[in-house]
Design a protein around this nucleic acid. Structure first.
Lengths: 191, 191
DNA sequence: CGGGCTATCTATAACTT
DNA sequence: TAAGTTATAGATAGCCC
């Protein structure tokens, strides 16, 4: 077959995109160029090695994207990931995850489950000045005297609560203890 | 110019990639096809509208990526984002962010800043069974009796600490108070 | 097993409506 | 102005070493 060939890439493009029969149109060529290596189905990768490799690559990609979002849009983004083997990676890397998470838990509309105490409980606890934790869902707790979400695992909460109930009556030397605590506290409070 | 044109896309590709002078090689054509619309420089987008639009799109992309990572690699991934206008988006959407964050703060190697109390403080506080918070950085606190990171803002911490120091001596009716607290606690603890 | 390659797939900036 | 389109930039699966 001998035909007149366009003399520039632009002309070639026009030539192809006009749907020349020889190539069954530009889109055919395009399809050919972009025939897929393989598209992953969106489910757990069964092969452990592949899973780890994919995690490693995609983790980096995700961090890059998160960083770009934060920079371009001047926003707060936090990212926490656990590898298939349980290793932790977070973004940002310098500890600001806590700050951003704090903003997260600090949102009233994000306090899931609603309030689980009432006026009377607050009245009891506030003068007591003891931090009392209330369990909600599997890890999310509210604490008093602050109406704020705290995070403790269920076991720890139970332990704390039992401590509180079993030992509170032994508190006869609080003043002395407080002085000791204050000595180690990283703040110069006028106790 | 009249030349012999390849009769299939594959042949065309070979023809072009062999570096035919007329097109100054396949890569030239490729360059032409992929000439950039525009590449963003990685810094804050100054136009507020563009910034918001970009946030919106990239936020969705990031969530998609995070979800893919979680599904493909069977892992825990949490994501917290604040839009330029301060609106919150998180992933996963159902509250498991807290769980994953708990795993994050629960890692000893992630407790930044190092321990700020010693054996004596623990000895003092444990029998006291009061949750004592230690401030570190601007929002990250350690608490006792659990060696675990808790999150409270600075002001709240100061308030709690002052309460603790000023009022602890008034705790004469702990038993009664505890009973009241227990009555409202969402757990059936044998106090 | 981490780093590089590249064919291919995916996300998205600019544009359109 | 939000949703859809397209051209392009960017991410990554499979492979090699």
């Amino acid at each position: 077959m001998v035909i007149s060939l366009p003399s520039s890439p632009i002309d070639l493009l026009h030539f192809l995109s006009r749907g020349n029969k020889s190539f069954s149109s530009f889109s055919c060529l395009f399809c050919f160029l972009f025939m897929g290596r393989k598209k992953l189905t969106m489910r757990r990768i069964e092969n452990a090695t592949s899973r780890q490799v994919t995690f490693s690559k995609r983790k980096d990609g995700l961090i890059k994207k998160a960083n770009e979002l934060a920079v371009l849009c001047d926003t707060d983004v936090a990212l926490i990931m656990f590898s298939p083997t349980g290793r932790l990676t977070s973004f940002p890397f310098n500890g600001r995850v806590e700050d951003i998470f704090l903003r997260f838990v600090d949102r009233p509309d994000e306090l899931k489950g609603g309030p689980i105490w009432n006026e009377e409980v607050i009245e009891v606890c506030l003068p007591l000045s003891v931090s009392v934790f209330f369990f909600c869902h599997h890890a999310c707790l509210w604490s008093l005297p602050v109406s704020r979400t705290c995070l403790l695992p269920y076991n720890t909460f139970i332990l704390s609560f039992q401590y509180l109930s079993q030992r509170l009556k032994q508190l006869k030397c609080e003043g002395e203890m407080l002085e000791k605590i204050a000595k180690f506290a990283p703040l110069s409070l006028s106790l």
